[in-house]
């Protein structure tokens, strides 16, 4: 039954890029990339119990890693593979001291990491400074550069599939069980021989790798990167997606990313209609993030996916 659902979802999402009108493809690509980043946040928050308000920093690091290496002549596919590695390494360097922190301290620390990175990117001439990094070549697969949105749609699909598969395996692994125990009571887990600190760092690095991989795809897809592409709000957005979908679930990030992206997209179209004030799109998207986040934390604290699962159990 579950396998059949997964296969059906895979078939539908694989058919979509061919069925969707051209103008909707960017939304499809960005939705899947957001889901990929959110999968990492969900793992981090749901299993390691850590709030990260700086996840988009690793998205940016992956994007810049891929973009810079491609601009300097490294084959693009290698650049895409370098992206998650660099992001994970950055997470290990940053996480080693910062993961000593808990709760709101860690939340502020990750937010600080994001802000410091933005400032470094804005001032570093190697990264194009405030103007950004231009002229990133398209991703080449088997010698063929991808120039259409459809191609990137399938790349994003594959990336998300890999990330969800890894999440699934991590959740079922020894480390996953140890982390869940640690999220409940860290002292008890440590007393039970779970190397809590090590696992936390691994999950932090893994979630950064997810973000970095998505960032790599983003760099090749847009062909341009600037500090402005990674505002603080992006980090908050993925937290909203993770919380709304349901933390610590495999499908939660996808559902959360889909709900938020589609809602924001719909409101964006409403907000850009003639006669609407210029601030309408921004105000509407802020309102959506805010109200969904507040409503879910207050009324569906475990998120949409677990809530729906409970409902279905109740009715069947």
């Amino acid at each position: 039954m579950r396998t059949r659902t997964v296969l059906a979802a895979a078939a539908v999402t694989l058919a979509l890029p061919l069925l969707l009108p051209e103008r909707h493809l960017p939304v499809y690509v960005l939705l899947l990339l957001a889901a990929t980043v959110t999968a990492g946040v969900s793992l981090l928050m749901g299993y390691a119990g850590q709030v990260s308000l700086g996840q988009a920093a690793f998205y940016a690091i992956g994007a810049y890693a891929a973009g810079l290496s491609a601009v300097h002549g490294v084959p693009t596919l290698i650049g895409l593979l370098v992206a998650p590695v660099v992001a994970a390494l950055a997470a290990v360097v940053v996480g080693a001291p910062l993961l000593r922190l808990r709760g709101h301290h860690l939340a502020f620390a990750t937010l600080a990491v994001h802000l410091i990175l933005l400032s470094l990117l804005g001032q570093g001439t190697w990264a194009g400074g405030a103007i950004g990094l231009q002229g990133i070549p398209p991703l080449s697969l088997a010698g063929t550069p991808l120039r259409d949105d459809v191609g990137y749609a399938y790349v994003a699909w594959a990336v998300l599939a890999v990330v969800l598969l890894i999440s699934h395996n991590v959740v079922d692994s020894r480390a996953g069980r140890g982390l869940r125990a640690a999220a409940g009571s860290e002292i008890a887990a440590a007393a039970g021989g779970v190397p809590v600190g090590g696992y936390r760092l691994v999950v932090f690095a893994l979630s950064a790798a997810f973000a970095g991989l998505a960032g790599g795809v983003y760099a090749f897809y847009l062909g341009y990167l600037g500090p402005g592409s990674f505002p603080l709000l992006l980090s908050i957005e993925v937290v909203v997606m993770a919380v709304v979908g349901g933390l610590g679930t495999i499908t939660g990030p996808v559902v959360g990313a889909a709900v938020i992206t589609l809602l924001v997209q719909a409101l964006n179209e409403l907000g850009t209609r003639p006669g609407m004030p210029s601030y309408a799109p921004a105000a509407l998207s802020y309102a959506v993030y805010a109200l969904l986040l507040i409503a879910v934390v207050r009324y569906l604290p475990r998120g949409i996916v677990p809530a729906v699962a409970v409902l279905r159990k109740g009715t069947s």
Partner: peptide
């Protein structure tokens, strides 16, 4: 809501901070 964890309340205040953006942009522009 009685029994709201400080962690959940933190996320709620984050949401309210973003909601303030929506209000401020609507009323006073960006």
């Amino acid at each position: 809501r009685p029994g709201t964890e400080p962690g959940a309340a933190l996320i709620i205040t984050l949401g309210l901070g973003v909601l303030a953006y929506a209000v401020e942009v609507t009323v006073w522009g960006d």
